[in-house]
Structures are given as structure tokens and as C-alpha cells.
Design a protein around this nucleic acid. Structure first.
Lengths: 205, 205
DNA sequence: TCACAGTACGACCGATCGTGCTATCTTGTC
DNA sequence: GACAAGATAGCACGATCGGTCGTACTGTGA
């Protein structure tokens, strides 16, 4: 089979399409994301957009992939840059809250919405979303385990439970922030994270 | 203006429509909920369904209202029946987890999805969803305050923070349960709620 | 019983959906 | 600069969307 080689301009527009698709999908959902809307938002023809993917499902997969990359860049990587252990736990939560105030996506966390929307729709799109959700929680869990090893957290702390709780705080913050655009809920979330981890409650600017 | 009086059979079918609408909306979302699907699911004509509401938005409002009633009946009222204070806090969480395993809605908690879907769509539907979300959190907060008054919780416990955390646990449980239909996540959620409230971790059958 | 309002239906509207096919550009390679 | 292949547009399709209209049926109060 011949590896189809792509052209530079095609790759550029594909990137632009997918980037716009992520934004639209956080508002309209992955199912509500329509090729017509996408095309007019990009000043392109429907078929011009469509040709890059061949099916709506491929577009959805590309959109989820792009959202994952953005989330990694904005939330996971900043946390990985922090000191291993407890600092990473705080950092990943703070990075998430920053991610929200930065309004990268108008509809809040892409994956929080995608999980609930696609959870009942079996198929590769759901699988990719589930895989990313697993990657994220596994990341938090790893931070927690390291923190326990380093005795920054009590030895009897359950990493799974802690991961669950922090994930819950993140989801509650996202939901509240989407509904009422009040940054105060993020301050409260930061405070709660610190109290849960037994850290002096000095939240960063 | 003359109060239009309804007929018994009309009220019956309207109830049936709204009930089905709630179920469909937990899977397809409130925007994805279509009158055509609804009609064929009920073995009715589109216009027959449509006549009961006059617009899709009215249908959505009726759907949210019905979902609220179901949620009150299945989650809030059982908690109100418990002993005031700490028992009500545990009870409301347990009732929510029961609500999930009972699979009243195939797509998990109606409002968890609705908040994220409609949060970026200003209008009466969003307002009604926000109002119910507020009612629910206010309910939890009231339980927390009572528990503090009765000294079942430390005096320095912050009711708002506790409400936020419990809401987070609920949202995390819902998301995980929708994605992977593993009841184990609900057991973990129950355990976490009890540990958070300093209760002996004997989870009910 | 009779008339009327409520109920439900089927046909239909314009718009948009995802998806093809074809033709015309544009780009990279020789 | 020719040429193949990728990129984009134009057009059309069947299906479905929310919504309207005219009409037939039926429950119910007078």
C-alpha cells in the first residue's frame, strides 16, 4: 500500500479545522458539531472540510485527539514540571483551574462534557475519550503515589480514593464555573484542594 | 384570558411524552432530543407530540421540570426522611448512588449532563437547570449546617466547602459510572463520603 | 343530546444534516 | 515547465430537523 503523502497547505488547513472543531464541540457537543457550521466558521465549503476526514466520526476522532493534546499541554505538562509528589498534585489542579479561567474552550473542560455525552454511545469515539480520561486519572494517581512514597502524605492514604476526590473537585469546579461564570468557585476549589492535601492555604495570584 | 381547560386523555399522553423525553434526553441531550424520535418512540405522529408544547423550547422546559420531579422523588425526598443532620448528608449521597444503579436514566444523572450542555446557551432552559442545581446544593448545604449545629460535624467545618466536595464526589461517581458501568466506583464513592464525614465505613447492602 | 374545545393525524414547508461525485485549482517533483 | 496528486469548491442526494396547516375524531360540560 502506498503511503499517501500530504501537502503542506493541506496539513495547515487540517490543523485549523481541527482547532476550530474543538472550540465548537465544547459548546455544541461532539454530536452537535456539524460540518456545515465548521465550514462557515472557517470560510470554507462543506466539501472542502469534509474531504479532510471522509466521515463525521473521523472528524470527531481528530477533534478528541486535538482536545487531548491541548489538555496535556495546558494541564498535565505544567504539573509534570513541578517537583515530584505533592507539588505535582497541587500543580495539576491549579493548572486545571487556570485552564478554565483562561477560557481555552468556551464550554469549560472538553472532556467533562464529552464523557457524559458519549458515555452512552459505544464506538471508537467513546473509547478514545475513555482512554484519555484514564490517562489523566492515572497521572493524578501517580502523583499521589509518589507523594505517599516521599511521605508528603500519610502512609495510609489511598491513592485511588484521593484521585477520585481530586477528580471530583475538578468536575464540581468545572460545572459551577460553566453555569455561573464566577471565578470565586475556582478560589474555593483551590482552597479545598490545599486543605485536602494538608497544605498551608496560600493560593497563588 | 380564558384558562384553557385540558382533557384527561390529553394530560395522560402529555405525561407519557414528557416521561419518555427525559429518558431520551439523558442519552441524546436536551438539544439532541428530537420531536421525531420522541414521536416514533411513543408511536405517535410528530405533530401530535408537537401540539402539546408548541415549541421545542417548551418541550425542553417540560422535560427539565419532569427530570427535577424525578430527582426530588428519588434523591432528595429519601434524604429528607432521614434523621436531620449528618444522617441526611449520608442519605442524600447514598440515594444518589442508588439513583444511578437503578438506572432510572440510561445516561446517568440528567442534570450533570444538562448543566454542561446548556451552560453555554443562555435562555429559560439554562435558567431552570441552574435553579434546580441551586436547589440541590442548597439542600445539601442545609443538611451540613444542621449537622454542624447538632455537633455531628466539627464547628469549624465550612458548609459551603463541604457541599462543594460532596457535589464533586457525586459528579465524579456519575462520570465514572457512565463511562465504565462498574458498580465498584459507587462503592468507592460511598466509602469516600463516609470517611469525609467521619462515619464508620459500613456501607449498606 | 349537542356543541365545542381539546386531541391527534398526515401532508407539507424551508433549512440543514452527513455524504457522495465531479471539476477546477494548487502544489511538489522530475 | 510538464505532470501527477492533493486540495478545495460546486452541486446534488436522501434523510431529518423544527414548525405550520387543515381536518377528522372524541371527551366533556351544558
Amino acid at each position: 500500500m502506498v503511503a499517501k503523502q500530504k501537502r503542506a497547505d493541506g496539513e495547515r488547513t487540517r490543523t485549523a479545522i481541527v482547532r476550530e472543531a474543538v472550540t465548537l464541540a465544547t459548546v455544541d457537543g461532539l454530536e452537535g458539531l456539524s460540518i456545515g457550521h465548521l465550514a462557515s466558521a472557517l470560510d470554507m465549503s462543506k466539501s472542502g472540510v469534509y474531504a479532510h476526514f471522509g466521515s463525521k466520526q473521523e472528524l470527531q476522532l481528530a477533534t478528541v485527539d486535538e482536545a487531548g493534546q491541548i489538555f496535556r499541554r495546558e494541564v498535565i505538562e505544567p504539573a509534570l514540571a513541578a517537583a515530584p509528589g505533592l507539588a505535582q498534585l497541587v500543580s495539576v489542579c491549579d493548572a486545571f483551574f487556570d485552564h478554565l479561567v483562561r477560557r481555552t474552550f468556551p464550554g469549560g473542560c472538553f472532556f467533562a462534557g464529552a464523557v457524559l455525552e458519549m458515555g452512552t454511545r459505544p464506538g471508537p469515539v467513546k473509547e478514545e475519550i475513555a482512554a484519555f480520561q484514564l490517562e489523566f486519572t492515572a497521572c493524578i494517581r501517580q502523583f499521589a503515589e509518589t507523594a505517599i512514597e516521599r511521605q508528603e502524605l500519610p502512609a495510609d492514604e489511598d491513592p485511588d480514593a484521593l484521585t477520585f476526590e481530586l477528580n471530583g473537585i475538578i468536575l464540581a469546579a468545572n460545572a459551577s464555573y460553566v453555569l455561573r461564570e464566577d471565578p470565586a468557585v475556582l478560589d474555593m476549589a483551590r482552597t479545598i484542594v490545599r486543605r485536602r492535601l494538608n497544605i498551608a492555604a496560600t493560593s497563588p495570584p
